[in-house]
Simulated scan of single mutants.
Amino acid sequence: MTPTEIAEKLHARDVVLLAGRLLLSLIFVHEGLQLATHFEGAQKAMAVLGVGTPLLIATIALQLGAGLSVALGILARLGALALGLFCLMTAGLFHTNFASQNELLHFEKDLAIAGGMFILALCGAGRLSVDRVIAGFVKGAEIDTPIEQHSSTSETSLPV
């Protein structure tokens, strides 16, 4: 398949889903790398907040694992759901001092990111995902297999 043929088969929905996945996952991959590469400093900062080393390690693993899951479209629904729940917990546990404008802003951002992740969990990664490529190879089908049409709405969903 030539680049022109690929471009003709792409739909705006898939390109937007890819851009959204990349933008949503950027903060988690970046923060996970920052925590991992500055582990001792992160460990001290988290201890002040009452977060122990095992939870810090789990946070790093979640941010990197689920962040890359969303970015690449590998089990993106599961990664998005995990990150959405993580954002809700972070907002509720660490950003509830609404007297501080900064804390209120972090609370609202966490809620907004969680909302985006839940929408992604519902919609799926789209055609431009590693899962879609793997499904094509496993089933022996072409990557551009038709998408399912829901009879109840005019919305479409991808099998992956």
Rank of each mutant, 00 (worst) to 15 (best):
H95D: 13
A61P: 00
A91Y: 07
A125K: 00
C87Q: 12
A125T: 01
L72F: 07
A7F: 13
L83D: 01
G140M: 07
A125L: 00
V29E: 05
L62K: 01
H11N: 08
L56F: 05
P159W: 11
G52F: 08
L128M: 10
T53K: 11
V48K: 14
L72Q: 02
G140R: 10
K44L: 14
I113T: 13
G52E: 14
D131N: 03
T2W: 12
G84Q: 00
S152N: 14
G124M: 04
S100F: 08
G52H: 08
E31K: 04
L158D: 15
E103I: 13
A121R: 08
G32K: 03
I74M: 11
I74D: 01
L85P: 08
N102R: 02
D110E: 10
I119C: 07
K109C: 13
P54C: 09
A91G: 09
A12D: 13
L23N: 00
L49V: 08
L111P: 09
E155L: 13
T153L: 07
L22H: 03
H95E: 15
L55T: 10
E108H: 00
S129V: 04
S129N: 10
L17W: 02
L18D: 04
S151L: 11
E142I: 05
Q149M: 10
T37W: 01
L75M: 12
S151G: 05
A125D: 04
L26V: 08
A45K: 10
L62Q: 01
G20R: 12
E103C: 08
P146V: 13
L88G: 03
H95R: 07
R77S: 07
E40Q: 09
T53A: 09
V29P: 03
A76Q: 04
K9R: 09
P159A: 09
G92V: 07
R132T: 14
S154G: 15
E8W: 06
D110G: 05
L55K: 13
L81W: 11
K109T: 15
